[in-house]
Design a protein around this nucleic acid. Structure first.
Lengths: 195, 195
DNA sequence: ATGTTATCTGAACGCCCGTTCATTTCAAGC
DNA sequence: GCTTGAAATGAACGGGCGTTCAGATAACAT
């Protein structure tokens, strides 16, 4: 059978991406087969190729989608003028956004090695653009004399690693809620750069 | 042919582990086949099973070996009594040790999901033991009134994530040497906890 | 020189892989 | 009611997978 009821392409496409994201996050890209993804969607493996040219493009698309969403969401955030407030806002935003999408974060950070050079370069560009947002904040705070760090690039990478780390252990219903965790991390981030 | 010259089991075993570690780090556990590992060592796939009961045990052994080495190396480090000095020493040790073994770090942090529950629990215990070393330092610094953090557990996880992040970008021959990087990170770690 | 044993080969096992494609099904447009 | 074309099937392709094991080989003990 095919085409049971209604137009399916609008529905099946997102369902495939959702299933792939979940499975890639849980088992890793290489460990997940196209047949498993198809089964999760309730479709045969061949049907996936109506929505993606191949398995690796599916991964690249998930990563691109995630990073573009991060960038768009960050751009939509209010931008305090004070560097200290900006840094704290960034920390809160980063944690909040990443805790909403732990699977996408996991995949985007762990499966880079499964991308071919062209896709890798595209993804890496997006990631650098995001990092640049934080680095700009650090630069401005340094110029304003409120931050005290010997190297903005290093501080950028250190802070992002610290903030992203939350996704590896945070579980809803745990000892601390999201807001509390974000508060604590924002404070540590601020102190780490000497403000 | 078999047994070309000398006793080989002392040599082949380590060579298998080394090849497996390199390949797992580069391509991921699931993406590497036993035949690829064997080819790297210059042996047929069947020969691997003289040294490991199966593929997953090989992974578990690599992880266990790494974590036990970290713990042993940390235990052999001098232990300043001042909490601030202890924290800085820990940060320097962590970065120094991890930069020496980027492949093992990568595998130990990324391939946890490929372990069966029993192996996962063993590895997790070792990791917790390492984290506890840092948490103890934070606790003592808090008791001594030199650190100012609302939650030692969170600070532990935040600091370890920050410090471990170095392995994802550091390259020898780059703008900064290992010692300089370790210095900067140690300072950020110290400031992050308010000392 | 012979026997023993650790070490490794090479073939085989059943199974799953990513991908392609002719064919079938069915909602929608006329 | 008929045609059209999007959507999905299901079988097939060549190939690689983890693992097993009988047999071959070479270093060592006697």
């Amino acid at each position: 059978m095919a085409r049971k009821t209604g137009s399916h392409s609008d529905i099946t496409g997102p369902r495939i991406r959702a299933a792939a994201l979940r499975l890639f996050a849980r088992h890793g890209f290489a460990a997940v087969s196209m047949r498993q993804i198809a089964a999760e969607v309730g479709v045969q493996a061949g049907a996936l190729y109506l929505y993606t040219p191949d398995k690796q493009s599916l991964l690249a698309e998930l990563m691109t989608e995630h990073l573009e969403q991060v960038l768009a969401a960050l751009a939509a955030e209010p931008r305090p003028t004070d560097p200290v407030a900006r840094l704290e806002a960034f920390a809160r935003f980063h944690i909040g956004f990443h805790l909403e999408r732990p699977e996408a974060v996991f995949v985007a950070y762990m499966e880079l090695r499964n991308l071919d050079p062209a896709n890798f370069a595209r993804i890496e560009t997006l990631r650098r653009r995001y990092e640049a947002e934080l680095e700009t904040i650090l630069h401005e705070g340094l110029a304003a004399g409120v931050f005290h760090i010997p190297d903005t690039r290093l501080a950028t990478l250190a802070l992002i690693a610290m903030l992203t780390g939350v996704t590896t252990w945070y579980r809803d219903g745990g000892r601390l809620g999201r807001a509390e965790v974000a508060d604590i991390y924002a404070e540590m981030a601020r102190k780490a750069v000497g403000a």
